[in-house]
Amino acid sequence: MYLVLAVICLIIIYPVFTAVILPLQDIDELSRTFSPISDFKGDYVNVDYIPQYPTLNTFKELLLFTPEFYKVFWNSIMITGTILLFQVIVSVPAAWAFSRFKFKGRKLIFDLYVIFMLIPFQVTMLSQYLVLNKMQLMNTRLAIIIPAIFSTFSVFLIYRGFSDIPEDVPNSARIDGANEFQVLWYIGLPLGKTGILSCVVLSFLDLWNMVEQPLAFLKDKSLFPLSLYLPMIDTDNIQIMLAAAVIVLIPAAFVFIMGQDYLEQGIIASALKE
């Protein structure tokens, strides 16, 4: 039993492990490793797990001599950061409205949110394009940022967090004369923190890996985020590509490790308390 699980864990870790090991190889070794892929002559790829001449030169080259990389990295940070910030600002009050107010059409609107949360991007791609085009936002970063701010998934996730707060707590504050904004600020936010943070973690991991939206709405490669730019690097620049892959991985791994509890709670909340 342990053995089976160990094998599964190994399979899961293996590709990531290889991705981290490979850029440590020097250029000669790398080109030997990759030659069967570009030009297959009967010799298969062989992966040396212990690099013969381990080196950090590739990283040096990427970080010191590839200014383009910083630009794209900055694109990713900018796009992801802006979306996350405004997503929270917009979604928190909406989630509060759904969880604390009873109003006509509440169930209908909420159901609509849930349904569109479940619809893949491709289905709404056309509709979004038409709007963005009319607003003349195509081929700007805003074309990626603005629609993503209005994510129904984050409203849903934060709503889950808020609906766990017992009604008495905000009510007692209301009796003490707090207005609704104060209630949200002083009671909703601290108590619904878990929901908000799990939304941030899950959204971050998804946005950092964004492919479909920039592919559809950006033409200018200098605006691409890393997740789309990386595959476009020329394949003769393999060592740069490998090093860049590790750099892309680092923020995601960092957020994963820091936010694993919130990630787990987010996944569970998104699914199980139907």
């Binding site: 699980l5 599964i8 864990c9 899961i12 870790i13 590709p15 990531v16 290889t18 991705a19 490979l22 490793t33 990759f34 069967p36 892929i37 297959f40 002559k41 009967g42 010799d43 298969y44 790829v45 062989n46 992966v47 991991l205 950092w208 890996n209 492919v211 890393l226 997740s227 789309l228 990386l230 595959p231 393999i238 590509m241 490998l242 892959a245 590790v246 892309v248 991985l249 995601a252 791994a253 957020v255 994963f256 694993q260 990630l263 787990e264």
Partner: peptide, 29 residues
């Protein structure tokens, strides 16, 4: 174990492209 199993969720697709190539190419691993 849970952490290991969940980790792929955090791995950007772009980071593993070359690894997929290494593994699955005709002359691959």
């Amino acid at each position: 174990i849970k952490s290991i199993l969940l980790f792929p969720l955090a791995v950007p697709t772009a980071a593993l492209l070359l690894i997929w190539q290494i593994l699955f190419s005709d002359g691959g691993y």
